[in-house]
Write a protein that binds this DNA or RNA. Structure first.
Length: 510
RNA sequence: GGCAGCGUAGCUCAGUUGGUGAGAGCGCCGGAUUCAUAACCCGGAGGUCGGCAGUUCAAGUCUGCCCGCUGCUACCA
């Protein structure tokens, strides 16, 4: 009776600037997974949001002449707006400044303390405010400042300063064995495989205790019982997944899947499970580290001047085109590249020439020759059996890929079915049958429309709006669009609306 | 420095435990066709599978070395 549950999250974004393509990509990929699970009969909880504490926000607010809360209230707006624009079907947009989250983090701290894993110590070292991280002396690089003096910079090229502060520490070192056991007994915990290997090697190399509080600024969640300290932003941030689940013993916990960028895999696969073990809380099932998007193969950076606004991209190409491109062209888990040309080329080929054309050519024949009434299927012949075989294999490949988070392979499977359906259509040439055998023509059209229906159903997670429009044209009732109705064709005789192109070809010139 | 991975047609990449003449998609060229968004369908174009040397009857597919690239990590301070 009750559906299986699926709790999926994105990492939360740090709103000290405008959202970039990386945010859009992560949100889209996670949304695709969430929508797939819903269509596949799961009760889904999808969490995304913003990470709003920390020194960088504090400083940015100061620079803007605002208090931090007012500053983040303003900065978070574009992130929510982008999610809305991209059709991200989140159930909650969490902010680490939310009251329930602050309370939860303090409760989490107390559990970790009760377990004896937190102790007061002293932290000193080279600290980069920009990176919010300490660095070993050896990692630093020397450079000249504007006045020509020699200064030290972090590996990221940000300024560092020698900092000494009292700090609470987490006994991360005590968790090495348990983490290794976790990895070895559950290889799916860290994906893709390359990240698993890296993280296992990192932990196997030994762990130091982790500084988990700061006294150098106050924009954060106070440490219970020691209000001079605010909590380390990562402890604060990671706990958002618990808040979003409904609390320390939340009904949605444990998470089935954390989708995160490859740069924060360590926080999610080493620190996070250790925190949870300390607090006696179950661990998430899987952490998946996706790759980065490159603009024409180059990293996006302000200095290169190649930063692209995802909202602008979505406006220019359309949300579904963008979603399709990112999932189709970038192997999920690896870095990917995009350009206006690539998006136009890819989506014209797949959507306009492929899916859109398949729907249009068959629907227009039904409209012109059969009064728009869904035709009756005939006894399957050789041609139909081959089509059926191709779809059986394609559908299986699609589900296997989706369940393995290989989004690009799922779309490859869909395109294989598009090719099979177009091949079937051309082979049987219903336009010729219209003059010789209208019964057979109707059968061919019926088979093609059902093939199209299946393709569009499977494409729903990737292109919510376009597929809804196509399913309308295909006469698929709104309550027959999840995967439980996959093998139920539209009833013959159903009146179809007048077809209209859903994926027009686009060109680059303005 | 260590560990891991990668380098295959213009582009993005597939290529199980080594074995019929090395593949797909896109792009490109030609043909066919007109139901369709000049799209679909059919065919083609030919890349010393990073380099060198080995193992083997036989190597993108195993071994060693070299070149280039990437990720993680370490040290020298």
């Amino acid at each position: 009776m009750s559906k299986p549950r699926f709790y999926v999250t994105t990492a939360i974004a740090y709103p000290n600037g405008r959202p970039h393509m990386g945010h859009a990509y992560e949100a889209i990929a996670t949304d695709v997974i969430a929508r797939f699970k819903r269509l596949d009969g799961h009760d889904v909880r999808f969490l995304t949001g913003t990470d709003e504490h920390g020194l960088k926000i504090d400083q940015a607010a100061r620079a803007a002449g605002m208090n931090p809360q007012a500053y983040v209230d303003q900065m978070v707006a574009p992130f929510r707006a982008l999610d809305e624009q991209l059709g991200i079907s989140f159930d909650r947009f969490i902010r680490t400044t939310d009251a329930d989250h602050k309370a939860l983090v303090q409760a989490l701290w107390q559990r970790m303390a009760a377990n004896g894993d937190l102790y007061l110590g002293r932290y000193e070292g080279w600290y980069s405010v920009r990176d919010e991280a300490y660095y070993d002396e050896a990692e630093l690089v020397e450079a000249q400042d504007a006045a020509g003096a020699t200064i030290k910079l972090s590996p990221q090229g940000t300024p560092v300063e020698w900092t000494v502060e009292e700090s609470w520490f987490f006994k991360l070192s005590a968790y090495q064995e348990r983490l290794l056991t976790l990895y070895d007994s559950n290889p799916a915990f860290i994906q893709p495989q390359s990240r698993f290997n890296e993280m296992r090697a990192f932990v196997a190399g030994g762990l130091s205790d982790l500084s988990v509080s700061r006294t150098s600024f106050s924009w954060g969640i106070p440490v219970p019982g020691d209000e001079r300290h605010v909590m380390y932003v990562w402890l604060d941030a990671l706990a958002n997944y618990l808040t979003g689940a409904g609390g320390l013993d939340g009904e949605w916990w444990p998470a089935d899947l954390h989708i995160v960028g490859k740069d924060v895999v360590r926080f999610h696969t080493v620190y996070w499970p250790a925190f949870l073990m300390s607090a006696g809380i179950a661990l998430p099932k899987t952490v998946f580290g996706h790759g980065f998007l490159l603009n024409r193969g180059e990293k996006m950076s302000k200095t290169l001047g190649n930063v692209v606004d995802p909202a602008d991209m979505a406006t220019r190409f359309g949300v579904d085109r963008l979603r399709w491109y990112l999932c189709r062209e970038v192997p999920f888990g690896e870095d990917g590249s995009y350009s206006d040309e690539a998006i136009v080329e890819r989506t014209n080929a797949d959507l306009a020439n492929g899916i859109g054309n398949l729907a249009q050519r068959s629907l227009s024949m039904v409209a012109k020759n059969l009064g728009g009434l869904m035709p009756v299927r005939g006894q399957p012949g050789d041609s139909e059996l081959r089509l059926k075989e191709a779809f059986h294999a394609g559908t299986e490949a699609y589900f296997a890929a989706m369940n393995a988070l290989a989004l690009h392979k799922a779309l490859d499977a869909i395109m294989g079915m598009v090719t099979a359906a177009n091949g079937y259509f051309a082979e049987n040439a219903p336009w010729a049958l219209a003059k010789t055998d209208t019964v057979r023509m109707a059968e061919v059209l019926a088979a093609t429309l059902d093939a199209t229906r299946r393709i569009v159903l499977l494409a729903q997670p990737f292109m919510p709006a376009s597929t809804a429009a196509l399913l309308d044209q295909l006469g698929v009732a709104t309550d027959a669009r999840d995967f439980s109705g996959f093998n139920t064709p539209v009833e013959a005789g159903t009146q179809l609306p007048a077809p209209a192109g859903v994926f027009p070809r686009v060109t680059l010139d303005g």
